[in-house]
Design a binder for these strands. Structure first.
Lengths: 219, 219
DNA sequence: AAAAGTATGTTGAAATTTCAACAAACGGAG
DNA sequence: CTCCGTTTGTTGAAATTTCAACATACTTTT
């Protein structure tokens, strides 16, 4: 557990929690760590939604896959980020998404009930954790607003530009890397991959952007 | 304030709060009520995101509108439902949406800081309110997942069917009313209104659905 | 009850997206 | 270094969506 300490400290769930408390807390919460190889399923659609996941190392992507196999990327998960906490907190029966490892991963799982309901030891940290959960759920809500703002654009070109402008704003620079390859970007923007490639080429030829693989530059 | 009591009690923010406490609490929270006529803007994009809204009577819709005037309906707001709580809780500077009254409305506004931070009277209810906020933010997260699941479908027909199947599930019946008129449904599904009308006609002719105005039936 | 305004359905043309297929570039594995 | 699998770019045809315009039905106002 020690080696993950720095990552855990950055996790929004443990905001304002002192280091010594954090260590004790993890035992009390019954946290466990599992490892996953690239492409392995960390959480499958239909699984009971009891656990909050925290990415300790590696990265993953959250998908929704329909009966025709069309996948839509909901979000990426980077180290120290939480996932599936909304399903656990809302006490839905099953998670409606699939989380797949992008690369070898270590993931910490915490039973959400251990956070929400006071344990027999009567630990004092539940209030702070609930407050932290609330904050990060609010932040995720805003992430969704942004995704909807981007994908509600009617044309591929507008979606690309809206996404790139958001990335530039986040990076605070006109030059930045995106976390998706072309197929993944297409799945995130909900457009056809080949059409996406064609449109990016066009934007490049028209001198609106520069791009090489995952690196982009707004001109 | 008295006449809104039954509505407020149903609001998820006040879950598990006893009736007598609720009354005192409202004063302490500095809740205020405003009325809006049909089509009036209850909250405008760019407003400071300090306040949580609670719909007391009437209904509204939450929009995102881009620089080209394309509007996307994010959600509807019915009596006893909260809105803009995510922006207030996440402490973003400004709300990124516009909330417009569908019909004459009464709305209660509560400064989110009064909920999150203990007041000088040291009222004991903050913990419960924060817990309730967390729950409803989690639930909204799931709403967004559903919207993304529906709008990520690539064709108008699939979007309609995904939406209607969700409505049927919610109503627990194949016969139900939807809360949108055609233009609004188009804005929610992020498609063209005339194309939507045409596709609904086609579904009707093919015997897949029955529909009359806002009433639908899956066959 | 008529008039005006709004919502819905219909249509065809134009624009866009998807799809399928292939070529080129790239990155590891051996 | 070469081979193989993967990613990215390109293309043209087919399908779909958007757009504009109008007809019809329905509501609200006067």
């Amino acid at each position: 557990m020690k080696k993950h300490f720095d990552i855990l400290r950055k996790c929004s769930l443990f905001n304002q929690i002192e280091d010594e408390k954090l260590i004790k807390m993890l035992g009390c919460l019954g946290a466990r760590v599992e490892t996953f190889d690239k492409k392995y399923t960390i959480m499958a659609e239909g699984n009971p939604a009891k656990y909050i996941g925290i990415m300790l190392s590696g990265s993953a992507q959250i998908f929704q896959i329909d009966y025709f196999g069309n996948r839509s990327i909901v979000a990426g998960v980077e180290p120290s980020e939480m996932f599936c906490e909304a399903f656990a907190c809302a006490e839905v029966a099953a998670v409606p998404v699939t989380v797949v490892a992008n690369e070898p991963c270590e993931v910490m799982f915490i039973d959400c009930n251990h956070i929400l309901h006071t344990c027999t030891n009567n630990c004092g940290f539940h209030q702070q954790l609930i407050f932290n959960l609330m904050k990060s759920l609010a932040t995720k809500n805003i992430m969704f607003h942004r995704k909807i703002e981007i994908t509600s654009k009617r044309s591929t070109r507008e979606k690309i530009m809206a996404y790139l402008m958001f990335c530039a704003k986040k990076a605070d620079s006109n030059s930045f890397d995106i976390p998706f390859d072309r197929q993944e970007l297409a799945d995130y923007l909900e457009v056809d991959r080949s059409g996406l490639s064609a449109e990016i080429s066009k934007l490049r030829k028209q001198g609106i952007i520069k791009s090489y693989k995952k690196h982009f530059e707004l001109l």
